[in-house]
Structures are given as structure tokens and as C-alpha cells.
Computed example of a mutant assay.
Amino acid sequence: MRIAYAALLTLSATALPLAALTAQGAPTKPGSKNPAAITGGTYTADSGHSLVKWTVDHLGFTPYYGIFGDVAGTLTLDPKNPNAAKVDVTIPVSKVTTASAGLTSHLLKPAAAGGKPDFFGPAPADAKFVSTRVVASGETAKITGNLTLNGVTKPVTLDAAFYGAGKAPAMMGGKENVGFTATTTIKRSDFGVAYGIPMVSDEVKLDIVAAFQK
């Protein structure tokens, strides 16, 4: 009985700050979906909140996902002239992750003697995307650029959309933030990664979350 009473007191004490916060009114998010919140300048990628999710078809049974994170790079943006925007980002392929430790290991597995790796190998070069043209329309844009992956460079067009902008709270650095989402589809065989086709699809869908700060 004493244990139950003590647990109830602990739970009540934990709930008190939440009750006080509710009484003061719920906090508001600093980010806004209003494009007017965007400020111009050169931004740096927020690597902790930027990622590239890739999706392939596995045997025709299911889609399978993986993630490239720790994106680095810059975005130069002028809200009054969005077509002049420039983006230059680097994606560390060596940090690829999936839900399967075995599959993640296979993606980075060394080549057999006299051959080449099935996928990226143990020390893959970073991937890189550098924009060459931006065509904006309202809150969306077509961003064409050169994607370098696995030592091969090919033109790729992203379908991008504005997600939110604003100033972070002082306790979180107080920086100006802007975020976008984007999608595209590539053929991995174009970049020299043809292992398992067609059992694992040649087409790879990319879903991108790009966060920037200045």
C-alpha cells in the first residue's frame, strides 16, 4: 500500500509541470508554412534534420527502405528571385542505414577477389548534388542538377516543395531556419550499381528532407 501511494505521489509531481504549462497556454511552433517567413542569404544544411530516404521494390512482394543521413552543404536563397537559388549538398554514402544489420553490411561489403562490390563497397565516396537550374512556381520548384554517386555523375531533376521557415527559439540557437521536401526517381544501374536487378528494382525512389539554417 505504501509503495502504491508513493508511486501516486511521484506521478502527481511529474504531472504538475504539464498542468502549469497547459494553464499558461500551449507553446506555438516557431516554423511557419508562410513563404513570407523566409529570409534571404546563404544557409548551411542542418545535418541532424536532413535525410534522403530511398525505396526499392523487393521481389515484387514489398517496398524496402533505407536512409542516407548527415547531409552537409549550403543553400543560397533570395525570396524575391527564387529561380536564382543554388544548392550544393554532400551525402555520406558510408553512413547508409537500413532496418537490417545484415543488409546494411552487404551494401558496404568489400568486393570479392578480382571483382567489384555488389553495391557501394567498404569505403564509398560521398554522393553530391549540385543544382544547375531552378524553376519555381509558387511554393514548389523543379530543381535540376548533377548527382554524383558511386563515381558517376548524371543530371537529375527534383520535385521540391517549401515546408516551413522561421527563427528557432533562443534555447535552440536562435537561427533562421528553412525546410523543404523533394522527390525524384533514379536508376541505380545508371550509377554502376546493378546487383540483383530485376529481383531488386533498378528504379530507386528518393524522398528528401532538407533543413537549412543561418
Rank of each mutant, 00 (worst) to 15 (best):
R2I: 15
R2V: 15
A6V: 15
A6T: 14
L8C: 12
L9H: 04
L11Q: 04
S12F: 14
L16R: 14
L16A: 15
P17V: 11
A19R: 03
A23V: 14
A23R: 08
Q24G: 07
Q24W: 09
A26R: 02
P27S: 05
T28M: 11
P30F: 10
P30S: 13
K33V: 13
K33C: 07
K33G: 12
N34M: 05
A37D: 03
I38M: 14
G40I: 13
G41Y: 02
Y43E: 03
Y43S: 05
T44P: 04
S50L: 02
V52H: 02
K53V: 08
K53Q: 12
T55Q: 07
T55P: 02
H58E: 12
H58S: 09
G60R: 08
P63I: 03
I67N: 11
F68E: 04
D70I: 00
D70Q: 11
V71P: 01
T74W: 06
P79Q: 00
P79V: 13
N81M: 00
A84E: 05
A84V: 06
A85P: 02
V87N: 03
P92T: 02
S94P: 00
T97D: 09
A99S: 14
A99C: 00
G102R: 01
S105K: 15
S105Q: 14
H106M: 13
K109P: 07
K109G: 11
A111R: 11
A112L: 10
A113Q: 09
A113I: 02
K116W: 07
P117S: 14
F119S: 06
F119R: 07
F120S: 06
G121P: 07
P124A: 00
A125E: 05
A125Y: 01
D126M: 08
A127M: 08
K128I: 02
K128Q: 10
S131H: 00
S131P: 02
S131A: 10
T132K: 05
V134R: 01
V135Q: 12
A136P: 04
S137W: 07
K142Y: 09
K142D: 14
K142S: 13
T144S: 15
T148L: 08
T148E: 09
L149M: 13
P155I: 04
P155N: 01
V156Y: 03
V156M: 04
D159G: 14
A160L: 07
A160H: 03
A165V: 10
G166A: 14
G166D: 12
G166Q: 12
G166V: 09
K167D: 13
P169H: 12
A170S: 15
A170F: 10
M172W: 13
G173I: 13
E176Y: 07
E176V: 00
T181K: 11
T183P: 03
T184H: 07
T184P: 05
K187I: 11
S189Y: 00
S189H: 06
D190T: 04
D190P: 06
F191E: 12
G192T: 06
V193A: 01
V193P: 05
G196K: 01
I197M: 08
P198S: 08
P198W: 06
M199T: 14
S201N: 09
E203P: 12
E203S: 15
V204H: 04
A210Q: 03
A211C: 10
F212H: 09
Q213F: 09
Q213Y: 11
Q213P: 05
